[in-house]
Write a protein that binds this DNA or RNA. Structure first.
Lengths: 109, 109
DNA sequence: CAAATATGTAACCTTAAGGTTACATGTGTC
DNA sequence: GACACATGTAACCTTAAGGTTACATATTTG
């Protein structure tokens, strides 16, 4: 039940602002300014979040002139899938527990 | 793409110590002392982690004499599954992006 | 080239998370 | 009842996360 290796991913996803940012990048890339627009927090704050998302391999940026275009990084899909797999592993704990309880109930009968 | 409602769960799972604790509780319950044993950090620290896990609905405790027995909470299974569902939703972003890219490539041909 | 635009970075502040030690509380046991 | 045991709580410390403002940098445009 090794749960390492998902730390970066889950840490990146544990912040609601960052999840929101990912949602915005769904389907089509965006300029940094557009990505930051509409949030209650400042642009530099968003910039920090994008850096964290990038370090987690979830997004990537490419420069286009003076603009910077953010988009979902292909590797991110796999990172998410890996995380889901680990969580399913965790979820299995409960199945096992339930089963163990059932066995116990059988024995008592 | 509503990503709310998973905050407590993902926050609880984002700490490695807490994931480790869940692993220990897989299959069979444990006394608080046993649960805390073997960790590098102090028992009170573990106690705080268990409280967070309990608040997230992942574990529950029952008193037995002067001992306290921790075990996985049935509701936790659903919390995990909900989280997984949301993450699959997030994962779909990448599929969409990939598709959009494919469509774009088709058009260019 | 000067001014405006787009954006990252640096320095700093505040707060909350995770730790620690000391202590309170409740429960067995002699 | 006194004492040991099992465990949660309180008070406090340190650090890192998330914010802010001010500034540096690069590029477009008049």
């Amino acid at each position: 039940m090794c749960l390492v290796g998902i730390d970066l991913t889950i840490a990146a996803l544990s912040d609601p602002t960052r999840r929101h940012l990912l949602g915005r990048l769904a389907n089509h890339p965006r300029r940094a300014g557009d990505l930051a627009g509409g949030f209650a927090i400042s642009r530099p704050a968003i910039c920090k979040h994008t850096r964290i998302l990038a370090k987690a391999g979830l997004i990537k940026a490419t420069r286009r002139g003076r603009e910077r275009i953010y988009e979902l990084a292909p590797a991110g899909g796999r990172a998410i899938r890996d995380l889901i797999a680990k969580l399913e592993e965790v979820g299995r704990f409960w199945d096992e527990t339930l089963e163990a309880f059932k066995r116990y109930a059988e024995e008592q009968r």
